[in-house]
Design a binder for these strands. Structure first.
Lengths: 112, 112
DNA sequence: AATCGTTATATCTAAGCAAATATAGCGAAA
DNA sequence: TTTCGCTATATTTGCTTAGATATAACGATT
């Protein structure tokens, strides 16, 4: 039996969570489906929860992460801004780097 | 306004959490006070919660992390084993390294 | 003007988890 | 043999949080 090191990182703005793993999943699903409600369904979360998450992200980010439209063809929709895309890219990169880093730290506990 | 990167790491054994920040706090308080109930009081957590945490730690670790004595002078007590001490040391070191690492990653988001 | 699938929001209900409470058992020491 | 403060554990109570439900508003298209 071996010990494992796990981690979770997130980006904060003004002591509010801006982006964590769940929020990134949601944003990616919005990118793929073109709407918040479809994204919520695809991730098996209630529309309300998804809306709260997205609202919180947009409120704490420096610039809008999505553009949401109400009404019109198809009832409306949501899509990521370039800013949102660059945030996701940065998060993914830092997250991966963190995993790799912790992998190297494993040697510090493997003899324990 | 600047974005910050926060993180949390923990050590798992067999998909159970072995050590996280809260558990390390508890173990350190046990070390200082010599008893689980005193440690719980000093950290403002209920004895039950503290006991559950310690029980879980001892159950998932390869070797006992504390030695608990019931009855006797002073009613009993708990103290860390050498093994427990080395676990705490390893956790603290890895945790600190992780923070330092993420500090360096900050440059990846400071322009966003 | 009617339709449609959204976004947006309020309200109520259920469930899970944390906290409080209670109590048994222990063993050294007086 | 009684006292003491602790470990150990069960049970209940309360509170927060998640989930379900309902509904208003929107605007391009027909």
């Amino acid at each position: 039996m071996k010990y494992k090191i796990k981690s979770r990182i997130w980006i904060e703005a003004d002591n509010n969570v801006l982006l964590g793993e769940g929020r990134v999943h949601l944003l990616k699903a919005i990118q793929e489906t073109g709407s918040l409600s479809k994204a919520a369904r695809s991730l098996n979360l209630s529309y309300k929860k998804a809306w709260n998450l997205l609202d919180s992200v947009n409120k704490s980010a420096k610039k809008p992460v999505t553009v949401n439209s109400i009404g019109g063809k198809g009832g409306g929709g949501a899509q990521l801004t370039d800013y949102g895309l660059s945030l996701i890219r940065a998060f993914d990169e830092i997250n991966k780097n963190c995993w790799d880093f912790l992998d190297k730290q494993l040697e510090k506990i493997e003899h324990i």
